[in-house]
């Protein structure tokens, strides 16, 4: 555990160090090149700002209006019927939409059941193997003006669904219920 946290403190600075040293060795004009890249990066952020505004407003409206609660309440009994822990239904749904809202739910689960409970462990694994699909997909596609996303959404949802199932089964196998 300690080792992992130490590694995570090291990973960003060491990556930067590694790349900059590598650049020096290859005789790249490092600072000039850095500025060139940084300028492109800023341009990118300005270009995607309208997309971000649209996305975040939509997600906030969706959450605050109560539609998300209705959907999770609808899924809860269905989940229970197939033997899926009902407490995790909201998390698996919200995770697709908003990372910060999902973190809030994760912490609620930790608070109510403890991080070392079955639910605590499953939700930890679920958070590590799933992504905010709605946000990522919109950001990347809209940045280049794609409107027809074809089979991307079903494939991504399937992958995330597999992750949720895998989390429940694997934690059950590894630690018991």
């Amino acid at each position: 555990m300690r080792l992992l946290l130490v590694i995570s403190d090291f990973i960003i600075p060491v990556t930067v160090l590694f790349i900059v040293c590598f650049g020096c060795l290859k005789k790249v004009k490092i600072y000039e090149t850095f500025l060139e890249g940084a300028k492109d990066g800023l341009k990118t952020v300005v270009e995607i700002l309208p997309t971000l505004i649209g996305l975040i407003v939509a997600v906030e409206v969706f959450r605050s209006g109560g539609l998300l609660d209705i959907l999770t309440n609808f899924i809860r009994p269905l989940a229970q019927r197939v033997g899926f822990p009902a407490e995790l239904a909201p998390l698996s749904l919200i995770r697709l939409v908003s990372s910060s809202a999902a973190t809030g739910l994760l912490l609620d689960i930790f608070r109510n059941f403890g991080p070392d409970s079955f639910l605590g462990r499953v939700s930890s694994v679920m958070m590590s193997c799933t992504e905010t699909v709605f946000y990522t997909m919109s950001l990347y596609f809209l940045s280049v003006g794609i409107r027809k996303t074809r089979y991307t959404l079903p494939c991504a949802l399937l992958a995330n669904f597999a992750g949720v199932i895998a989390a429940v089964l694997l934690v059950g196998m590894a630690f018991g219920k």
Partner: peptide, 15 residues
Amino acid sequence: VAMWSGVLKIAEKGG
């Protein structure tokens, strides 16, 4: 993002 794009550019130019 600007910081990482800069670093990425160095990695890119260095091959």
